[in-house]
């Protein structure tokens, strides 16, 4: 399923809404999650999962092509942990 198919499903469920409003609704949700993580916040959606930001320490990496050492700066990466309910549903519980 891709973004446009998700929008279509929501639109089918809600015939009283304009398609463009459904698009705005879906886009707002994902935008809000990304914005929260860009601020360093967590987004906890019980039953579904939690989005958080993890810190990766600076390290000395290696250019795999040349074998040369390179300094990799500390950075922050997005992380998702599946919620219990969804994890159980994936396994037919």
């Amino acid at each position: 399923m891709i973004r446009s198919e998700l929008i279509q499903k929501i639109a089918d469920d809600n015939p009283h809404l304009y398609q463009r409003d459904v698009e705005r609704i879906v886009n707002t949700i994902f935008e809000e999650i990304t914005n929260a993580m860009a601020r360093g916040d967590r987004v906890e959606l019980r039953g579904f999962g939690a989005f958080s930001v993890k810190k990766r320490d600076a390290r000395v990496g290696r250019n795999p092509r040349t074998g040369e050492s390179v300094e990799v700066e500390e950075k922050h990466v997005p992380f998702f942990k599946t919620g219990k309910l969804l994890r159980d549903r994936l396994n037919g519980k």
Partner: peptide, 22 residues
Amino acid sequence: MSEKTLTRMDLSEAVFREVGLS
């Protein structure tokens, strides 16, 4: 880092602000 935790409520608040729904 601010380290707040957002929930469904914050997402629906954002939808509420963005589109004129209840």
